[in-house]
Amino acid sequence: MPQSQRKYEDVKVGDALGPQELFLSKEQVRAYARTTGMWVPRFTDDEGARKEGLPGMITPGNMSLALLSKLVTDWLGSSDARLVRVGTTYRQPVLPDHTIILQGFVTHTNDADRTADMDIWIENEEAERLVIGTATVQFGKS
């Protein structure tokens, strides 16, 4: 699928990012943990996670942050814009082997510095927001 070439002039408050529905498997989470040197029971093993008081293995916060960052960069496509800030708050554990929904909205634009602010979040199947955050993207000069 060709990537969009989003332009600042086309961005409006209220524009949606996603929703992207994704089945996050335990194997994907383990692969992330292995790659990033986070091979600890809470991210790799249900039994080990339960010993830490968790309901089962959970997704690393950095992986949730990465997924939300990708939501934003996918939305930017091949335009000249870049993600200049992203921040998240972790409200509930993201449990693998469940479907998650990544979503966001543009909430503010600034013509002077050609930036757009957006809300971003990860929901579970029951529309509970597990991770919420905001991001800012900046477009190049026209």
């Binding site: 909205f105 503010h108 809300d119």
Partner: peptide, 9 residues
């Protein structure tokens, strides 16, 4: 109340 911490909520 929304208890909103994000604009869109």
């Amino acid at each position: 109340g929304s208890d909103s911490h994000l604009v869109s909520l």
